[in-house]
Amino acid sequence: MELSSFIIFLAAIFTSNILLTNFLGMCSFLSVSKEIESSLGLGFAVVFVMTMTSALNYLVYHHILVPMNIVYLQYIIFILVIAAFVQLIEIIIERFSPLLYYSLGIFLPLITVNCAILGVSLFLIIRNYSFVQSVAYGAGSGLGWLLAILALAGIRQKVKEKFVPIGLRGAGLSLIITGIMALAFIGFSGVVIIQ
């Protein structure tokens, strides 16, 4: 069935949220979700990088890897493309907007190793998306990731003032919260399925 790009975009945010259904990109999700402000910065950086790299990796895959018959190298090449792209953006942002650099740029190196970014690039190949669908999927997944980290940061900021049993403090409670959030997101799954 040919899905419209808009549906893929929405589905990537809600029903197939890259973080809450695939549990990808957990490390920066757990470590940067202590405050809403910084999680917002990281979230937008992820949205931007995910959208751009899914477009780039789509082009690289279909115009370089497939014609040269080396699709089995996609993992390495995708990582290279992502790393180089993130570096490039960092240099450019630093030059033109120091303020943006300090609200977004400091998160960029963290994103290079965010597995959700690589995951999106790999999924869009497996699912045979077209170029427009890929970009929609990348942007949607980025926004979904932003939504998830923002929700967790909001909850964690509230939890900070409450008593938490010692054994649950830190990552323990965050993982439980994430699990419950993922359960809540299952509620969306009847709407549309893309995987």
Binding site: L80, V81, A84, Q87, L88, I91, I92, E94, R95
Partner: peptide, 12 residues
């Protein structure tokens, strides 16, 4: 990719 980065480093 490395070449692109070097160029960016020189230009930007």
């Amino acid at each position: 990719l490395a070449f692109l980065l070097v160029i960016a480093d020189l230009v930007f």
